[in-house]
Nucleic acid binder design. Structure first.
Length: 819
DNA sequence: GCGGACTGCTTACCT
DNA sequence: ACAGGTAAGCAGTCCGCG
């Protein structure tokens, strides 16, 4: 499950699970030491005064497609690796010297995080119990590798004993305390094996607390904290929400404040990110210490938010995340924590711990399974899976695959020097290369529309075109076959399989050809299908990010021409499909990146297109959606449609954006409701009338002042801390205002404001009265929201309303004059 | 002195 | 700390205009 370097024993340490599923802590017995590689010979290194063990090794170096000789420099401790790396900087540099020791330890011992292990001859052997059935041999580049991953990923996920921990601090007001001057007044533990316990400091009503849990009352705060931690330490995993940033550091600080010197928590703040872990106190060892999993770190990850939970939560408060993931929120608080009565305090505290646990058990333990799958694929401990981004996971997987093929991992600067240049001009200033095509939509209402899309376009392109850092623009002689990349000077050698192409292609195939079909196979029992579904979601996250990381500066194998070539071939593929569709007589009315919307295309044409894509481009073209009708304006990424089964699809419209006031979102939803009833052109007339009525009613409400200001609140998420903004937009002004008033507003916070007449222009809703609202401003906003819809229906906003204000009237007049 | 065209900055969304 | 493309808002600058 994890690994680290233990300085006391000067050894690598692994946490694994035993055959029986019990946690087990294993200290290295193989003599594994920290090391790096150098292109220098041992005698040259000795001459430089390097004292270490030298081993000459032959490795394959992908950047020049040759075997090379390097020296493995084995040293005493991880710190020496860093010192040596700096020392060798001017002497040919070091290789594989930026890899943390515990990572090498994992790759080299062959341990697989997320699996149970057995012990044989001093080695840990991972227990792989998964079976590989029906491996599709055609189109899989490396059947053996494919089979290995299938077995690895289909091995059962053990149920890990774990306990959720949550604390409450008796700070006055709604301030979240940073300094340890306030007492910890309650701690709750809720486990997946039946423990439900709250530890509270003695207070009025404490003895009468009646909850579905054991309540322990303490006079002494130190005793209470120590007892709670002792109980938590019986579990191999402790779950928190925000424990890295709050619960654990606060407990540590508070214990020190109360005079305890040997504290079982180690934390780090600021700088390289914050994290907190449990540590052994005097007389105990690492095996008695649980792993800390802060779920907020996991859910805060953009990849998780977007792909697995469908962007279901907007901010990271426990309440929001819990409602989205498990459909259950927090207990409403009548007052500040410090003023709660004992009963309410315990209920609140217990509920938070309960929700934290449920985030990992809900939906057939989806989160638990995802974490384990990521751990297995990327050979990373749960510690790091939770805390680090997707690029770290892909990096770990790729490094491990280099290691086992005895390939020397190239330095980022070497890849960049050899393969750095891009040639296409981006549409957006500041970007590095040209991206996807968006086909101009044909404005109007279109009946009978089929959406075709390429299943995972970019990973398919990477696979099919053999794109990889070592195959693109490789130094080649005349007799080595290459294939050119359209719109660029790039070429790819095709006589050797590129490693990125192989690995990304395989993850794609694992998902598309194996786990996804299994997750939908009705002949399998439901829990088995749910398991395969978790596996395919984990693979999806990796697939979706695999192209992106190649264009990401901090990725270890950052390779701009590969990213550029991927996008270029993507454009080529979709353009070819579009041209072919038109050739076959279908009208292409829109398309974005990997899709085309075709109108009036009979089934034969669709089939012919799919056939052509398969034969000519080696690409799978799928029917993604069938629309009863779609409505476009000239705006891209902006449309409404109703599918044949009556589902409304809205894309990009203001009416669904998170920062549109609730009042307008509601009106917009009503208008869509009307549209969903439409089956043919005639019924549109009725819908239009109803929409007109909805808009008018909304305007009347605005003008009458008959509303709650909260209905008009605009919610914006800050990307920076307020003090870091130069801009003076309303949300920035209000953020600064709130901070002045003592609220904790920072990057990631949601700022709410309403437009008011007069000086500052915007105010937090709780400070504004309905009479102050800048009604004109909101009428403009309403217009923007509905214009996107109205224009699509072939009308103008003013026409549908009549001239409702002098400004609109004059606007119309000017437009009439100009045209 | 005021509006329009423009740019830069920002957010939210699409694939 | 995965990518680029698009829409839209606000604030500021420049320019033209009796």
């Amino acid at each position: 499950m994890g690994s680290f370097y233990e300085s006391k024993s000067n050894k690598g340490v692994l946490y694994t699970a035993t055959e029986e599923g019990r946690p087990y802590c294993w200290r290295d017995e193989t003599g594994h030491r920290p090391y790096l590689y150098s292109p220098l010979k041992p005698e040259e290194l000795r001459a430089l005064g390097v004292s270490a063990t030298f081993v000459r090794e032959e490795k394959y170096y992908p950047l020049i497609d040759s075997q090379i000789e390097v020296t493995k420099v084995i040293v005493g401790d991880p710190l020496s690796v860093r010192n040596l790396r700096e020392k060798l900087e001017n002497y040919g540099g070091a290789r594989e010297a930026n890899i943390k020791y515990f990572r090498n330890f994992i790759y080299d011992t062959g341990v697989i995080p997320g699996l149970r292990h057995k012990y044989e001859d001093g080695r840990r052997i991972p227990i792989i119990e998964g079976r590989a059935l029906e491996i599709p041999e055609e189109d899989v580049d490396d059947v053996e590798l494919f089979e290995e991953y299938v077995k690895l990923l289909s091995s059962p996920v053990p149920e890990i004993p774990r306990v959720a921990l949550d604390i409450e601090v008796g700070a006055p007001g709604e301030e979240v305390p940073r300094e340890p001057e306030y007492p910890v007044i309650a701690i709750s533990l809720v486990s997946n094996d039946g423990l439900r316990r709250t530890y509270i400091l003695e207070r009025p009503g404490a003895k009468e607390v009646d909850v579905d849990a054991e309540v322990r009352i303490y006079e002494n705060e130190v005793r209470m904290i120590t007892d709670a931690l002792k109980d938590a330490f019986r579990y191999p995993v402790v779950l928190t929400r925000n424990g890295d940033n709050f619960d654990l550091p606060y407990l540590a600080k508070r214990l020190k404040y109360l005079g305890i010197t040997d504290v079982p928590i180690h934390y780090r703040t600021g700088g390289q990110g914050y994290r907190a872990d449990f540590r052994p106190v005097k007389g105990t060892r690492h095996e008695n210490v649980p792993i800390h999993v802060d779920l907020m770190q996991f859910f805060g990850n953009e990849g998780m938010r977007g792909y697995v939970f469908g962007g279901a939560y907007d901010d990271l408060r426990l309440d929001t995340v819990a409602k989205a993931v498990i459909g259950k929120g927090k207990v409403e608080l009548p007052t500040y924590i410090s003023e709660l009565d004992a009963q309410t305090l315990v209920e609140y505290n217990l509920n938070d711990a309960q929700i934290t646990l449920e985030l990992t058990t809900h939906n057939n333990s989806l989160v638990r399974k995802l974490l384990i799958m990521f751990a297995r694929i990327s050979r990373m401990g749960i510690h790091d899976i939770v805390r680090r981004g997707i690029s770290a996971r892909i990096d770990s997987r790729i490094l491990r695959e280099h290691r086992r093929r005895n390939r020397l991992f190239p330095r980022r600067e070497d890849v960049l020097r050899e393969k750095g240049a891009t040639f296409t001009d981006p549409k957006i200033k500041g970007k590095k290369y040209r991206g996807a095509i968006v086909i101009d939509p044909v404005p109007g209402i279109h009946f009978n529309v089929i959406v075709l899309d390429v299943a995972s376009l970019y990973p398919s392109v990477i696979k099919v075109r053999n794109l990889s850092y070592e195959t693109i623009n490789a130094p080649v002689s005349k007799d080595i076959p290459v294939k050119r990349i359209p719109e660029t000077p790039h070429y790819v050698r095709v006589d050797r399989k590129g490693i990125m192409s192989l690995l990304i292609g395989m993850i794609r195939d694992l998902r598309v050809k194996y786990f996804k079909p299994k997750s939908k196979d009705k002949s399998l029992p439901e829990d088995e299908r749910a398991f395969y579904d978790a596996v395919q979601s984990a693979l999806k996250v990796l697939i979706n990010a695999s192209y992106g990381v190649l264009g990401f500066e901090r990725f270890s194998l950052y390779c701009p021409p590969v990213a550029e070539a991927t996008a270029a071939v993507g454009r080529y593929v979709i353009s070819r499909i579009k041209a072919k569709a038109e050739e076959l007589g279908a009208k292409v009315i829109y398309g974005d990146t990997d899709s085309i919307f075709v109108k009036d295309a009979p089934e034969e044409v669709i089939e012919a297109l799919q056939e052509r894509a398969r034969k000519e481009l080696n690409i799978d073209l799928e029917v993604d959606k069938v629309y009863r009708y779609v409505v476009f304006t000239e705006r891209k990424k902006n449309y409404v449609g109703v599918t044949t089964d009556g589902k409304i699809v809205i894309k990009g419209m203001l009416g669904k954006k998170r920062n549109t006031p609730e009042m307008f979102k509601k009106a917009f939803a009503e208008a869509l409701e009307e549209l969903s009833k439409v089956h043919d052109p005639k019924e549109f007339e009725r819908a239009k009338e109803r929409i007109k009525e909805i808009i008018r009613t909304t305007i009347r409400r605005l003008r009458s002042g008959n509303f709650d200001v909260n209905e008009l609140a605009i919610r914006v998420r800050l990307s920076k801390n307020p003090e870091d903004y130069d801009a003076k937009q309303p949300h920035v002004k209000v953020a600064k205002m709130l901070r002045q008033m003592g609220y904790r507003v920072r990057a990631g916070s949601i700022v709410e404001y309403v437009y008011v007449r007069g000086k500052p222009g915007a105010k937090p809703p709780f400070m504004a009265k309905p009479q102050e609202i800048d009604v004109e401003k909101y009428e403009d906003l309403l217009k923007s929201v509905f214009e996107q819809l109205i224009e699509a229906l072939g009308m103008t906003y003013n026409e549908i309303l009549g001239a409702t204000s002098l400004k609109d009237f004059l606007g119309d007049l000017i437009r009439a004059k100009n045209s």
